[in-house]
């Protein structure tokens, strides 16, 4: 099992899924979100993939009832789309609408997201649905800063340790070579 310190660090960094851009509440009439893009980033699919990896977990965390589906094709020239399905009758029920009503018709909005960055895609999504972003509290902001600082520091430390290790290894290799030569000459 992974070391507990490592595991707890990952859990502390779970903050990213709760806050930041992408943490938003979708309105009740959104029934499903779909995406369609290429499996490889050539041809302007980078933003779409980034959006999936960085923004969609946040959206899913805040809106667990809304199904999110992704289909990836193989063609770089193929479409790169963001589908938003909405129910025709805006429901006034609380957000715990039962997810059995999966939409079957064509999507209400189909946004072309080719060559767009993930933040631009998010803006388009908010524009189309009127989603409400969740504010980051100052405490969370501070925590994020701490995590960022920690990561920078660990990167520096890592470099230092690597340098030291390489030096040791180099010295040992030199020693070994010298010893080997001595043994050969005598």
């Amino acid at each position: 099992m992974v070391n507990i310190v490592k595991r707890m660090r990952v859990l502390r960094e779970l903050l990213w899924i709760r806050t930041g851009p992408g943490a938003l509440l979708l309105p009740n009439d959104v029934t499903k979100i779909g995406m369609e893009f290429s499996a490889r980033i050539e041809g302007g699919h980078r933003g779409a993939r980034k959006f999936w990896r960085e923004m969609l977990p946040k959206i899913k965390y805040r809106n667990p009832t809304i199904p999110i589906e992704i289909s990836r094709h193989k063609e770089p020239d193929g479409p790169s789309l963001l589908h938003i399905f909405t129910s025709t009758v805006p429901s006034t029920k609380p957000p715990t609408h039962l997810p059995t009503l999966t939409p079957s018709g064509p999507p209400t909005h189909s946004i072309d997201v080719k060559s767009l960055s993930e933040s631009a895609i998010l803006e388009k999504l908010i524009e189309a649905t009127g989603a409400k972003a969740i504010e980051t509290t100052p405490e969370q902001q501070q925590q994020m800063e701490e995590i960022k600082e920690f990561k920078e520091r660990s990167e520096k430390d890592r470099e230092m340790v690597r340098e030291k290790l390489m030096k040791e290894r180099r010295e040992q290799a030199l020693l070994k070579m010298a010893r080997g030569d001595a043994a050969a000459s005598s």
Binding site: L14, I17, M35, P57, K58, I59, K60, I70
Partner: peptide, 9 residues
């Protein structure tokens, strides 16, 4: 809830 968010898509 977290796991479902991580497995999105």
């Amino acid at each position: 809830q977290y796991i479902r968010a991580f497995e999105v898509g």
